[in-house]
Design a protein around this nucleic acid. Structure first.
Lengths: 207, 207
DNA sequence: GTATCAACCGACACCTTGTCGGTAATCATT
DNA sequence: AATGATTACCGACAAGGTGTCGGTTGATAC
């Protein structure tokens, strides 16, 4: 009794289970044997669909980042939303993304997941930086910001928020609040925004 | 003909060779077999001195970061050097550090070295951030800066410079220059320094 | 000279990834 | 409906990795 599925079905099944297992045990500790055991397929089947364990990881990261970036893009391209609100929403989108809500991300900073973490971060940042830069330029045109290097400003803000808000489990609420306030303040300065203009829209979430 | 050495001697020997091999092949690809083969010791000897391969990695990172941080500390604590110059030197120290000069760091961004990279970055940043924050406060007192959150400002600048100047191999010289100029500019803004005050001391290196 | 201890050895157990020749289900084509 | 080609699937196996463990040898102490 051998069960046959379409390639796409099977691939998704493998990705789903692999994602589960990476979340439970970490990328290094979860073996391909764990994956095939949980699905109930043979070794050869796994390698029929994916060339290597790392290819599976890449596919998972692809799935995850694609939707995150799509979300950010939707916000940025919204014609009706004011720029400042878009900035706030975009920042939020990324920090929810990496703010330890997803099961995989929950233990992503564990040493066994260094590879997952690094790849994810690279892809997320390279996808989101241009979008946020676009937003900065929009703010420049409207006289809300005065950013001379929108691209690099975006990069700096994105990288920092990604790295700094990565492991906030071991912070007290007070520390978190301070960190959030400081982040908003520095973002205002980098963008050349009027003091307090971002606090209004971001304060409720960060502070 | 068995050669006996003191534990410290042997440990250092292992670390030296391991560092070489991690640099050549990456952490994942270099096996403990490679290490013992190159030294000419037995498997048991390696595990007599270190409990695991990862423990060797940690020891190497320790050695490397210790000296980097010591260098930064020496600069920060120099009583005779002007603050702005210290800021420049400190920033330089870190970027030389991670600017692909060392053989190990040369290929650190390769996927096989994600773990090495992550651990190194964490340790470096956590060590350097407080030092740089101290420098910022000194600048505040002298009226050179106007930084409301010295600790977080330091964190932002350190994290960004570490991540952003990590993989500069695939950038054109022109792009590098632009990135450097933007970085200086944003650093001035974050610190609340007078426009151009950092360009004077940092320009020669970055721009 | 003998006892003790730390450095050292190497076989071995166990696990991992990726390969490969063969099998069975499905889809075209006539 | 039969035949052929394609594609999913299987599981044994090779190659190689990490960490363990009982035993051995050199150095140190007494």
């Amino acid at each position: 009794m051998r069960i046959v599925k379409t390639a796409e079905e099977r691939k998704n099944e493998i990705l789903d289970v692999a994602e589960e297992l990476f979340a439970e045990k970490g990328y290094d500790n979860a073996s391909t044997n764990d994956i095939i055991a949980r699905i109930g397929i043979a070794r050869g089947t796994l390698y029929h669909h994916f060339g290597s364990k790392e290819e599976i990881l890449d596919a998972i990261i692809d799935r995850m980042t694609r939707q995150a970036i799509a979300g950010a893009k939707a916000i940025v391209n919204d014609k009706d939303m004011p720029v400042l609100e878009k900035v706030a929403k975009a920042l939020l989108a990324i920090n929810i993304q990496n703010g330890a809500k997803d099961a995989v991300l929950e233990q992503m900073h564990k040493p066994q997941n260094a590879l997952l973490h690094q790849k994810m971060q690279e892809k997320l940042i390279s996808g989101v930086v241009p979008l946020f830069a676009q937003l900065i330029e929009e703010g420049n045109k409207q006289g809300l910001f005065d950013a001379r290097y929108p691209q690099e400003a975006s990069e700096m803000i994105m990288i920092y928020s990604n790295v700094a808000f990565d492991e906030l489990e071991n912070l007290t609420p007070k520390q978190m609040k301070a960190k959030g306030k400081a982040f908003i303040h520095h973002t205002e300065r980098i963008l050349g925004a009027k003091e307090g203009s971002l606090v209004k829209v971001l304060g409720p979430f960060f502070g």
